[in-house]
Simulated assay, not measured.
Amino acid sequence: MSDIAGETIPPEFWQGVQEFNQGQFYDCHDTLEAIWMQSGEPEKTFYQGVLQIAVALYHLSNQNSRGAMILLGEGMNRLRRYEPVYSGINVSSLIEESEDLLATLYDASIDRIAEMATQVRSLAEGGGGCDFPVPRIEGSGE
């Protein structure tokens, strides 16, 4: 386990971070949900915020832009109290990137949402990047 500034973060969290950054948002959901359910505060709310952003991206991959926007907002709001850095994670960067995606979704047409969904699905397959902002979980030194 990693212990930074008093928080004890299990190794499974870092597995979830890797899944998130590889575009495996459903797998990330499963990984983080398991530790979220067993956690106490302050970690519980932190995990839930990250989890909600992962699920938002999963919703986007299924062209559910409404669900994606709702969960992006909820996840960002939960994470704000952990800014700028929590347990080695650059929370401010994750929130900023999520805000950028939320703004992009807000202005996107139905056809654009379909294109974005295809690009998000390709991330998990090792495909190319997206032509819109996709949040990443970065360490505080990255």
Rank of each mutant, 00 (worst) to 15 (best):
I9C: 12
G129W: 00
R112V: 05
A68W: 04
A114G: 13
S98G: 02
L105Y: 03
C130K: 09
G16W: 05
I95T: 02
A5S: 12
R121A: 12
Y26H: 09
R81N: 08
W14F: 15
N21M: 08
V91E: 02
R81P: 01
Y82P: 08
Y86H: 09
G75E: 05
T45I: 09
L79R: 02
N62Q: 15
N77G: 04
S2I: 15
P11M: 14
V55W: 03
V17K: 10
R80V: 01
L32F: 07
E43N: 11
T45A: 13
R81F: 02
S109P: 10
E12G: 00
A68H: 03
N21E: 14
E115A: 14
G73R: 10
V91M: 07
D131G: 08
I110E: 15
W14D: 15
R136P: 09
D100L: 10
D3F: 06
R136S: 13
L51P: 01
G127S: 06
D100K: 13
L79C: 01
N64V: 09
D111L: 13
D27H: 09
R80A: 06
I110A: 13
M69W: 05
E74K: 07
S98W: 00
A54V: 06
A108W: 08
I95Q: 02
I9W: 05
I4H: 06
F46T: 08
R121P: 15
A108N: 11
A68T: 03
P135T: 02
S65I: 14
E125F: 04
L72V: 06
A34P: 02
